[in-house]
């Protein structure tokens, strides 16, 4: 959000800075559609050191958390609440490889309701067959599902490595993530009855 650095603070009218005014400490209006990388001040990459994410998150949350604005005006409390929700979401997205991958490929961390990928018939049939086998014999599919998932993750790694090197693009990512979602269903031990 580089433009924001040049704006004046709504409260003290000095040069504001990003997220929190450097002069008076008041929170600045949060962005309507936050980019998790930009919010935490990190370069968009798939291969990311999680401690960098945590450090950026803690540094910003220390300044913006609602507890810091307990005695302040309602408008500041509202902004700090929105900002902290945005920071929490940004950390969640960047710390989860699947969400991070989806965001880089599609601009959204969550699965799209429409316009998402259509998985090919052979794959879906395989899933259907495996479901039936699983019902007969719980846990029997897990090794195969995990192996397939591992190979898809390796493929995703290669895609992102190429992309970060400036070659290749990410159009296949969404499809591969959708497959992983199906495979995740087999990898778990059946839930315990309450």
């Amino acid at each position: 959000m580089p433009e924001a650095e040049n704006l004046a603070c709504w409260k003290c009218h000095e040069r504001a800075g990003v997220a929190v005014c450097v002069s008076c400490g008041a929170p600045q209006p949060p962005p309507p559609s936050p980019d998790p990388f930009a919010v935490l001040g990190l370069t968009p990459r798939f291969f990311l050191d999680p401690t960098l994410v945590d450090e950026a998150y803690k540094r910003l949350t220390r300044k913006l958390h609602p507890d810091r604005f307990s005695g302040k005006a309602a408008v500041e409390r509202r902004m700090s609440l929105q900002w902290t929700a945005i920071l929490n979401d940004a950390r969640r997205v960047l710390r989860d490889p699947d969400r991070r991958a989806r965001w880089l490929a599609t601009g959204s961390a969550e699965v799209r309701e429409r316009g998402g990928p259509r998985l090919d018939t052979p794959f879906l049939q395989q899933m259907f067959t495996w479901r039936e086998e699983e019902e007969e014999d719980p846990g029997v599919i897990a090794p195969r599902a995990q192996a397939l998932a591992a190979s898809i993750r390796a493929e995703l790694d290669a895609l992102f490595r190429a992309w970060e090197a400036g070659q290749g693009e990410l159009s296949l990512v969404e499809d591969r993530l959708a497959r992983l979602k199906y495979l995740d269903g087999f990898a778990v031990v059946p839930p315990q009855k309450e």
């Binding site: 609602p66 929105q82 902290t84 929700a85 945005i86 929490n88 950390r91 969640r92 309701e113």
Partner: peptide
């Protein structure tokens, strides 16, 4: 166990 404050939207 999502850290709060937390927001989500649905259309």
């Amino acid at each position: 166990c999502s850290t709060i404050p937390v927001s989500a939207s649905q259309t």
